[in-house]
Computed example of a mutant assay.
Amino acid sequence: MAEQDYLIKVMSKQDLLQAIDWAAAEGWNPGLYDIESFHAADPNGFLVGYLGDEAIASISVVKYDDSYGFLGFYIVKPEYRGKGYGFKLWQAGLQYLEGCNVGLDGVVEQQGNYKQSGFKLAYGNIRFEGVGGGDEPEGIGLVDLSELPLSEVLDYDAAFFPTERKHFLRHWISQTGSRALGIKQAGKLVGYGVIRPCRNGFKIGPLFADDALLAEELFLALRAKATVKDNIYLDVPEVNLPGVALAEKYSMEPVFTTARMYTGDTPDISVDRTFGVTTFELG
């Protein structure tokens, strides 16, 4: 097929569903109901490459504002790899994010390519796998995030993300089948987390807390949403040693690693209080 038949365009929701299927085939275990949250973050931030009538490549380049964007979903269908289609989509994506500091969570086999495109390593992330179940802790000030003003969640979230992500979070904390909890002490939010259903089991993310004890209480409360028959997953920055210790305490095993990389300076976010990354796809 002639090269001019390769067309790059903004994804429709149907294209995005297909990209999520591709991510599942890569073993990335996306959430069952992620599409609304992802699309809300930036409807123009998902690109697809079509060869004739066939979608063959995807990338997400979510622009949170004019200063920060996040790249993910970089997938080319296996039979079309090594032909330059992915790189053309990559270039189009980075052009959309021109002027932004761009973050990504890169899989091991792509990290060298990302460095060649100007991305610099900030730290690694480890995906841990365990099982659900257990009892929800009592007397710690647990609240459903649905009962709080979104502004209160956004104020707390600001320490953990380079810029506001109101549109994304509004959907993320109310996903179908999910549970979103916070801990309030002395009238103040001191941690929050979300557990959501995925193709395989459940993922906890984010898991943000002011200290390791609060993170553990939140983890236990979220884990109780699943059963002992369910796998659960937690993506921990490897530089957060208490976070790694938390996963290991509950017999979770490392199954996957990524590298958090940025084109600009590493943002001043609270990695030491990030016990679980929100999502590798959108940061």
Rank of each mutant, 00 (worst) to 15 (best):
V271W: 09
T163Y: 01
G130W: 05
I20K: 02
G264W: 11
F46P: 00
L154T: 00
E253T: 10
E238L: 00
L89N: 02
I232W: 00
F73I: 07
Y33C: 01
L234T: 03
L207I: 07
I20F: 00
L121V: 12
F219T: 02
D5I: 02
F38T: 03
R165A: 02
G264N: 12
L207S: 07
F219G: 07
R260G: 03
P137S: 13
I195A: 05
G93S: 08
L94M: 15
V271Y: 12
V255L: 06
N29H: 12
K63V: 11
K184A: 04
F73W: 04
K203H: 07
Y80T: 06
A122C: 14
A57P: 09
E136W: 02
R199M: 05
F202C: 10
L142Y: 03
A19F: 01
V190P: 10
G69E: 12
L7P: 05
G276W: 06
G86T: 09
S174M: 07
I232A: 06
G72L: 15
A180V: 04
G31I: 01
K188T: 13
G86Y: 09
A122D: 14
L282C: 12
V131T: 15
V108S: 13
F161W: 04
S67E: 14
F38S: 01
F87P: 14
F70L: 05
P30I: 01
L222P: 00
P137N: 11
R273C: 15
G130F: 04
V76S: 13
L17E: 10
D211P: 12
S58C: 15
D155E: 13
Y123N: 09
F119D: 01
Y50Q: 11
G31S: 12
Y250H: 09
E79M: 11
D268Q: 13
G201I: 01
K184R: 09
G182K: 05
D66K: 15
F219Q: 03
K184Q: 12
W22C: 11
A209S: 13
V236A: 02
R165S: 00
P267A: 12
Y50V: 14
F87K: 14
M261R: 06
K203N: 04
R273E: 15
R81A: 08
T227W: 01
R165V: 03
S37I: 00
G103Y: 09
D135G: 04
L220A: 08
N125H: 14
L154M: 06
I126P: 15
Q91G: 11
F73P: 00
R196T: 03
G106L: 11
V143K: 02
N101S: 14
E147V: 03
Q95I: 09
G139I: 10
A57I: 04
L89T: 02
P197F: 06
E109G: 03
G243E: 01
C198W: 00
K229M: 10
D42T: 10
Q18C: 08
